[in-house]
């Protein structure tokens, strides 16, 4: 069953388009990473899905509910951990629990205190006395205590130390997906989340450049390095070549949709002494795609 569906979503701030008719469907239990450069609209998409802002066009549904027309029910079942801390500075964790618990039908106080202990968040210290990272951990604990069916994470690792990052990325997210919680996260920490994301979406200039299973992406995007007999000026153009570099007799290009036959076809007009095919990391794939995209 699709837990997150959006179709043709568009949003502009004044004359600046941020999202241009983006569409996707995310199934239950999936972990989907939304990657993009600063200011491309990741947070905007998160807020639209959560019903905090309205799109200019298009529709969205979480757990079959429209967040614009059913915001209360959506938010009782979907949690959003945003990039910035919007907690009341005068409250502490205990006060926050007293404030929020009545609003969520599935609130689990014991689970909240368990997460507080696990993430080492003091329960009696005011929010404005917490460090940035601790605030983020508190926000995470609050979100998890409501036992959401869908978790929207906007830069979930900001300000966290390496130990906690690892804890969140591997242990926490794993346990959530084991329970069937769908996770849709936006982040710059591509490398950190590469190992847990089932699917990758790259947002650039308002559109989805990439929307694929992680395994498919890493399998299909490859770097080809070839040594030629004679130096060449340039690599022949091909729609599947994402980027290319020539240095004397060394030719290197990144191919989307790698197959040996395709490599052979591209190098057919050259006298190739030898060539190698290597994989790219997800960050490298991200850089390659976003560097190529100049906006349409």
């Amino acid at each position: 069953m699709e837990t997150i569906t959006f179709s043709g979503l568009s949003k502009s701030y004044g004359r600046v388009p941020v999202l241009r008719q983006v569409s996707a469907t995310i199934g239950a239990g999936q972990v989907v990473g939304l990657f993009g450069r600063n200011g491309v609209g990741k947070t905007t998409l998160m807020r639209i899905l959560y019903g905090m802002i309205a799109p200019d066009a298009g529709s969205a549904a979480l757990l079959g509910l429209d967040p614009q027309t059913n915001p209360v029910e959506v938010r009782q079942r979907v949690a959003l951990v945003s990039e910035e801390c919007h907690l009341y500075p005068w409250m502490d964790a205990t006060t926050l629990e007293a404030f929020l618990a009545p609003l969520y039908p599935k609130w689990d106080g014991a689970l909240f205190r368990q997460h507080l202990a696990g993430l080492e968040v003091p329960a009696d210290r005011r929010v404005d006395a917490l460090s940035r990272g601790t605030k983020r951990k508190l926000m995470l604990a609050l979100a998890l205590a409501s036992q959401p069916e869908v978790l929207l994470l906007d830069e979930p690792l900001g300000g966290l130390d390496a130990v906690v990052r690892e804890q969140i990325v591997t242990t926490l997210i794993q346990s959530l997906t084991d329970r069937g919680v769908t996770i849709f996260l936006s982040t710059h920490e591509i490398e950190q989340f590469a190992k847990v994301c089932d699917r990758v979406i790259i947002l650039s200039h308002g559109s989805f450049l990439v929307d694929r299973e992680t395994a498919d992406l890493t399998a299909q995007v490859r770097r080809i390095t070839a040594t030629l007999e004679h130096p060449v000026e340039a690599v022949p153009a091909h729609p599947k070549i994402l980027s290319a570099r020539v240095h004397g007799t060394q030719v290197e290009f990144i191919l989307d949709g790698y197959t040996p036959e395709l490599v052979t076809a591209i190098l057919a007009n050259y006298k190739v002494r030898e060539h190698a095919v290597t994989g790219l990391t997800l960050p490298e794939i991200f850089i390659t795609f976003t560097s190529k995209d100049t906006g349409r």
Binding site: V72, R75, L80, H86, L87, Y88, P89, L103, Y104
Partner: peptide, 14 residues
């Protein structure tokens, strides 16, 4: 001023 309006707007309350 506290920056808590988004948090308020995000509550499961209409």
């Amino acid at each position: 001023k506290q920056g808590t309006f988004p948090s308020l707007a995000a509550l499961p309350v209409n």
